[in-house]
Design a protein around this nucleic acid. Structure first.
Lengths: 188, 188
DNA sequence: GTATTTAGATAGATCGGTCTATATAGGAGC
DNA sequence: GCTCCTATATAGACCGATCTATCTAAATAC
């Protein structure tokens, strides 16, 4: 049973926005690639902007769900590491060309726009979860460590597009391991 | 003496592209903000794409020049650290809303385009200089350390736009210091 | 006097978005 | 099983706005 037209549109738009950018992807190309007609898009979404926000929200929900699942099944004291690894798996599977939220922030940089706020909130959402993980693991230097891990994961996001997923993940893991080891031994 | 029309166009276009994105910035707005007429732009640049590449090249040259200056005046064994600090100063002064090369890669993601290649080359250029710095400082784990520092600096690029320059630079410095200290003591 | 800049009209393409009329599918009620 | 109704999808014309880019003729500057 095929997905609903709405889901087809969301999936196709997500792929095209991610691969070619938001402005560079016209609604004509989206509907053509989704195998639907133009009015079907505007029947489900009030505008291209609404489609973009729906795409970003859906993707972010999937991302957060995978993070939370990893955290929930982690051994005690290993929540932070599990979250970092879940982030790496997400990159590997869905985000090898960079972070779509970062792209959205770049293209809709004028502050105050809903898209910019949404993408920024997605990123701070990750930071908040890292902080919660660090706290639950009872690692030293709570607040600072989470932000440092965040910086590294952000760097991982853009490095995959440049050096490939293998190298980016290996280097990311090396840095995060060092940070976690230092926090566990009380050094910083 | 005012700058040449060409320089005015380059500076204005750089600012607008950076603040609002490449696709979102039309040539009309550029020439209006530069106080120039549209034909003047097309007299100096064959197309908007040519203007974009000229902007990126000029900015990258300035960035590399500041990196090289920092490296040249660094004490022996401190080249890598000097380069990391120069990167931080660049962020502070010119790049508080994220890396323009990353934005360019996001908006012109189709591989093969000159703009994408240019922006990617700018990033690998930084990595190459980090590798040279690590080598000249005779730090342990040459190749790996440079790539790890690169990941962190990339993360710094995007984090400034989210957490502000103060927090981003502090966290970046904490991570790079840890990496450099570990490399210096032979641990990794 | 030569090169640059200005002014403004203009071209052609593409953009997001709307409209209407037709067609199709699925469930409710008999 | 059959009809009817409603919701959804289709096809394609159409709109105004905006986009990049060009052309020409007058003005300006070194």
């Amino acid at each position: 049973m095929p997905a609903s037209k709405r889901d087809q549109l969301l999936a196709t738009a997500e792929r095209l926005f991610y691969e070619q950018g938001f402005h560079a992807t016209g609604v004509d190309r989206i509907v053509a690639a989704a195998g639907v007609v133009r009015m079907t898009l505007y029947n489900h979404f009030t505008s291209k902007e609404a489609l973009i926000t729906a795409v970003l929200k859906a993707r972010h929900e999937r991302f957060i769900a995978s993070l939370d699942a990893a955290a929930a099944s982690a051994s005690p004291g290993q929540v932070t590491r599990a979250m970092v690894e879940a982030h790496g798996r997400w990159l590997e599977r869905y985000s090898q060309h960079g972070c779509i939220m970062a792209k959205a922030m770049g293209e809709f940089a004028e502050h105050g726009t809903e898209i910019h706020a949404l993408a920024a909130a997605a990123k701070t959402d990750l930071l908040a979860r890292l902080e919660a993980a660090v706290k639950s693991d009872e690692l030293d230097h709570h607040e600072g460590l989470a932000r440092r891990l965040f910086v590294v994961l952000e760097g991982s996001n853009t490095t995959v597009a440049l050096l490939g997923v293998q190298a980016a993940l290996a280097d990311t893991r090396a840095v995060t391991d060092a940070l976690l080891a230092a926090a566990r031994s009380g050094i910083s």
